[in-house]
Each structure stands twice: as C-alpha cells, then as structure tokens.
Simulated assay, not measured.
Amino acid sequence: MRVSGKFTVQMQAQEASFEGSDGINVTRMSLDKTYKGELSAHSQGEMLSAVTTTTGSAGYVAIEQVTGSLSGQSGSFVLQHSGIMDQGDAQLTLTVVPDSGSGELKTLSGTMDIRIDSGEHHYDFDYELDVLP
C-alpha cells in the first residue's frame, strides 16, 4: 500500500548541542510533527545532526513515535531516520522499526520518503499491514 500527504514539523534545539574542535557542529533537536491525509497522526521525536565545514555535507539520525490512524487503522509506531548529504547530494531513509507497532498497527512495516516542495513538507509512505486474526 502507498499513501501520500503533507505534514508540518516544529524543531527545537536541545542542550546537548556542541561544536567540535574541527568545526563540525553537532546539534540535538526535538521534533513535533502533524501528519495529514491517509496518515492522520501526531509524532514526537529526537534528532541528532552533524554539519561539516564543507558546504552541503551533513548527516542526521532521528527516532520519532507516530500516534494516530493510517488508512482508518489506529495505533502507533516508530520511524527511524538516517540521512546523509554529500556536497548537496542527499540520501534519506525512514523505516518503521520492526515490532514497534501497537493497536491496529501492530503488524505495520514499511518505509517513508519525505520531500519539501515550495516550503511544504510531503510524505509518501509505502507500507504493509497484516490483518490480525
């Protein structure tokens, strides 16, 4: 199955941020998202990023717990993010953490792509959801 929609995100810097001696800036941020569409949900999470001294090169990891409904099925699940930018060339992977689902989303697995178009955040979520007996 695939669903698409929009989301909003608020990020707030946390105290664990620091600048390394080699100019690499490490930042910890809290995430607060609202998903709209077939994924109607709220999520909270934490992100850790490292920005290098080379323009366009950085990396980040994040974990967010998503709670709401997916195509009419309610529950929660955890998304794990892993992103790299290599001089502007971006690679991003968001994966449902195995066995992190609850409620009607208990058997959820899948991956999500995100993109920003004209300042708006969009998601495409490819998932599988086994029907529980």
Rank of each mutant, 00 (worst) to 15 (best):
A50N: 03
Q14M: 14
S118F: 00
L39H: 13
M47W: 01
T54S: 14
Y60E: 13
G75V: 04
G59S: 14
A13F: 01
E104Q: 14
V3R: 05
G37M: 03
G75D: 08
Q65M: 12
T34P: 08
A58F: 08
G110M: 09
P98W: 04
M85L: 08
E46V: 15
E104T: 00
E64C: 05
G72W: 07
D113M: 09
S82C: 08
G119H: 03
Y123E: 03
T54W: 04
T95I: 11
G103T: 02
L132N: 12
E46N: 06
F7W: 06
G56K: 01
S118N: 12
V26Y: 08
R28S: 05
H122Y: 14
L31Q: 08
S30Y: 05
R2I: 13
K36N: 11
M29Q: 15
D86G: 01
F7K: 06
T53P: 02
A62C: 03
G88T: 09
S76H: 01
E38P: 11
T107F: 05
D117L: 11
S109V: 03
G45N: 07
S21T: 11
L31M: 14
S4E: 11
M11H: 07
P133I: 11
G75A: 04
L94M: 14
A62D: 06
M112V: 13
K106E: 13
H42E: 14
R2F: 05
S102N: 07
I24Y: 09
L79A: 03
F77L: 00
Q44V: 13
G56P: 03
D89A: 07
T52S: 12
Y127P: 09
E15F: 01
V3A: 13
A50C: 10
V51A: 15
E64K: 05
A16R: 02
Q14A: 12
K6S: 15
K106Y: 06
G83L: 10
S71V: 03
E64F: 05
P133D: 13
G20K: 04
L105G: 06
Y123K: 00
G83Q: 11
S118L: 03
D124A: 07
S57T: 15
G119N: 06
T8E: 11
S69N: 12
F125M: 08
D89K: 11
L129E: 01
E128H: 10
H122I: 06
Y35N: 08
E128F: 05
T27P: 00
G101D: 02
Q80P: 00
L129C: 04
T67V: 12
G59V: 10
A90S: 15
S71T: 12
D32L: 08
T55H: 06
Y60G: 09
L105T: 10
V9D: 05
Y60R: 09
T67Q: 09
G5M: 06
V131R: 11
T107L: 10
S71H: 07
L92C: 12
P133S: 15
Q91V: 10
F77V: 02
M112T: 06
Y127I: 09
V61R: 01
A90M: 13
G68H: 01
Q65P: 01
E38I: 05
H121V: 01
G72M: 06
